[in-house]
Design a protein around this nucleic acid. Structure first.
Lengths: 243, 243
DNA sequence: TCATCATTCAAACAGTTGTTTGAAACCAAC
DNA sequence: GTTGGTTTCAAACAACTGTTTGAATGATGA
């Protein structure tokens, strides 16, 4: 009678995928060193040896966990930058647009729950301060092209600001973003539950506002202050403004 | 003939101190899990069993590494806030002063090389995203009083801004600061050597400028944007400004 | 049906982990 | 010198680490 009814169901992923999913979640929750092979295979309902069979070694598994997601993210980052450059006649883009594209894409990825976004982004944000040299080098290598292009775009967008200054601000923005993404439910040093319950939309709006405010802040007078004694307020200097 | 000549020399610290110093440096460089007892005792030129003799267990050693520095730092943070509150008649302090006191004190501590500042602060900055639950809880407990007082001061200083909004901005500022302190020579995702060679003075000036810019940024219109599609620029709203 | 391939599995591997032990060494006070 | 308490030391502990092995199982195509 009843032919096969097309019901929406979630087929069990193959072992390789189950291992990647489990590893991703555990790495995000407990870090690389603290996550053992046995935790991973147990969570993935796979045999202990299957990790080494499918990935070779733990380090290769870590690489693959990142590679699976990062490729698409950097690709979209670069695509958005391409689009911005196409849309401008002079090749110069408004700084705010650049920042929105770069960091906004990270938030977008974090919001994309369907692709395991939240879990991965927590992992990613945390990994930015990861001590493990192997992980650091891998991340840097994987991200280098996108970062360099956005950096150069910002240099062109802010001709009046020194590259050194711009890199510093990028550094600060990266820190704020990583912390915002990673720390949503991790360490909440501020002890507030408000932070925990945050959807991607409001996080995006708040973070962008903060980042652009920081980017547009008056340039500091470097070298004139003395940190060790009473710190002086950085005097306002001229700064480029963008729409 | 020659009586004992009073020469400036560095006496070898006792085993307990040597262990704490070595552990601090190793934790900062490699993380808690990746640092073994044997690494610590080897660097401290002490016997393996001496860690357990002096501290009991590894977790207790971690606690003591933090306790040794954090007490003085939070004390100075609270003292500066006291001073600010005494100096104001109304009890309301300028937001910039609050931010300068809170985050500036962290930079000051980082600059205080004599007390092992740089090493500890790198450790501290990294620990803000530390997965280890034990470490997280300990840090939160140790820092709770200072954080709460500064938070309340900011609430009073910005009566026009919702507490939720302020906590978010604090969150972002904390991320930027932690990354700036910890990441000076750690992961340099931006691939720039400029970042590495930074003295505390210029770091302070640049960070403060950025943080205050972010704090003063126009409030975002939350809930109106749609992250998933093309993200919209947060529209400017009114915001309190401080001198 | 058979051979071929990829995958799974229980068991073991050598090495490392944090911790404990009990004797030795040290050091002051008597 | 002897005592008593603190600190150091080499050695061992059980538990756990990532990885390997070789046989069993599964699926695929001829």
């Amino acid at each position: 009678m009843a032919a096969s009814i097309p019901v929406e169901y979630a087929p069990v992923p193959d072992t390789r995928t189950r291992i990647l999913d489990a590893a991703e979640a555990l790495f995000a929750a407990r870090g690389f060193e603290a996550t053992t092979m046995r935790m991973i295979t147990s969570a993935a309902q796979a045999n202990l040896a299957s990790v080494n069979y499918h990935f070779g070694a733990k380090e290769s598994l870590i690489e693959e966990v990142f590679r699976r997601r990062l490729g698409a993210i950097t690709a979209r980052m670069l695509a958005r930058l391409d689009e911005l450059e196409r849309a401008s006649d002079s090749g110069v883009i408004r700084p705010s647009k650049i920042v929105e594209a770069f960091f906004g894409e990270a938030i977008c990825a974090a919001a994309d729950e369907a692709r395991g976004g939240k879990v991965f982004m927590r992992l990613f944000g945390r990994t930015l301060t990861e001590p493990n040299e192997f992980v650091r080098n891998f991340l840097k290598r994987e991200y280098a092209i996108a970062v360099e292009r956005y950096k150069q775009a910002l240099f062109r967008a802010l001709p009046g600001v020194s590259p050194e200054e711009i890199v510093w601000r990028l550094h600060f923005m990266l820190g704020a973003t990583a912390h915002a993404i990673a720390g949503a439910d991790a360490l909440n040093l501020l002890g507030d539950e408000m932070i925990a319950a945050a959807d991607a939309d409001t996080l995006y709006a708040r973070l962008m506002s903060f980042l652009l405010g920081g980017l547009r802040a008056p340039l500091p007078l470097t070298g004139a202050n003395n940190v060790s004694s009473a710190p002086a307020t950085p005097k306002a200097a001229s700064s480029k403004r963008d729409g």
